[in-house]
Write a protein that binds this DNA or RNA. Structure first.
Lengths: 121, 121
DNA sequence: ACGCTGTTTCGAGAACCGTCAAACTAGAGG
DNA sequence: CCTCTAGTTTGACGGTTCTCGAAACAGCGT
C-alpha cells in the first residue's frame, strides 16, 4: 500500500512531447509501461473513475465492473506500479487517487508542438 | 497498405478528457487499443520517430533498432491498426506518417481540466 | 476473542503478445 | 523474363497478461 511506483516520474518529466524529437530508447523503456497501463479497457475506465474525483474507494469501483474483486485489485496494482495512482487505507476501506504530476506529464508527452500544416490529402 | 484503421477516430473525438467524467465502457474499448499501441518501448520510439517529421521511410526506421525487419513491420502494423499512423508505398519504399487527428485526440484525453488543488502530501 | 466485511495475494489455466526465420508480394532495372 | 532490394505475411516458440477461486490479511463491531 502506498508503495513507491516502479516508474520514476522524474525520468518522464524531463521528456519533451514525443512529436518534438526522437525519444531515446531508455526513455521509451520508462514511459511505455505508463501507456501500457492505460491500454486495457478496464484500467482505462478505472483511471477515468479515479481521475474524475479527488479520491474514490475501491468499494465504489468494483461494483461498476462484471469482474471479481481480485481482478479489479490486480488492475489497480498495475496502475499503481505504473505510478499513475496512489492509495492508502483508512479504516476498512482503501482510497485511490490520481498522481496528478505523473498523469499531467503523460499528457504532455502527447502534445502536438506545431499544427503540422501538411494537409494530408 | 493505407488500410482503414480498426479504430474509428470519430468515436474518440467525442470523448472529453478522461479526468472530466467517467469513460463509458464502449468508449474505453475503443480508446484502450490506442494506448496499448503506445505501451511498447519499440512502438513508442517508432511513433516518436514518425511524429517528429512529416513522413519517414521504413528503411530509415528499421536500422535504429536491433530487431528483425518483420518485427518492425509487425509493430508498424499495430500502430496502423490503432489508427495512429498511416502509410503508402511510393516506388520501392513505404512511407509512414502520423494521423494528426487521432494523435491529437489521444493527447486531449489526458488533459487535466482543473489544477486539482489537492496538494498531495 | 470471535466473526464479519473489504481488500490483497497466491496459484493456475487460457488467451494474448513480441520475436524470429522463411516464404511471399511489390516495384525497379536490366 | 529474371533478379535484386524493400516490406509484409505466415507460422511457430516462449514469455506475459487476464481472469478466477481459494486463501491470507486488515479493521470494525460485538
Amino acid at each position: 500500500m502506498s508503495k513507491q511506483p516502479v516508474v520514476d516520474p522524474d525520468l518522464v518529466a524531463c521528456c519533451p512531447p514525443i512529436a518534438t524529437r526522437r525519444l531515446e530508447a531508455n526513455q521509451a523503456e520508462v514511459i511505455a509501461p505508463m501507456f501500457r497501463a492505460l491500454g486495457d479497457p478496464v484500467r482505462l475506465r478505472l483511471m477515468s473513475m479515479i481521475a474524475s474525483v479527488p479520491e474514490i474507494c475501491v468499494c465504489d469501483l468494483t461494483p461498476e465492473f462484471a469482474l471479481s474483486g481480485p481482478t479489479i485489485s490486480h488492475h489497480l496494482k498495475v496502475l499503481r506500479d505504473a505510478g499513475l495512482v496512489e492509495s492508502d487505507r483508512r479504516g476498512t476501506w482503501v482510497w485511490y487517487r490520481v498522481r496528478a504530476d505523473a498523469f499531467r506529464q503523460l499528457g504532455a508527452l502527447l502534445r502536438v508542438p506545431a499544427p503540422t500544416a501538411e494537409a494530408s490529402a
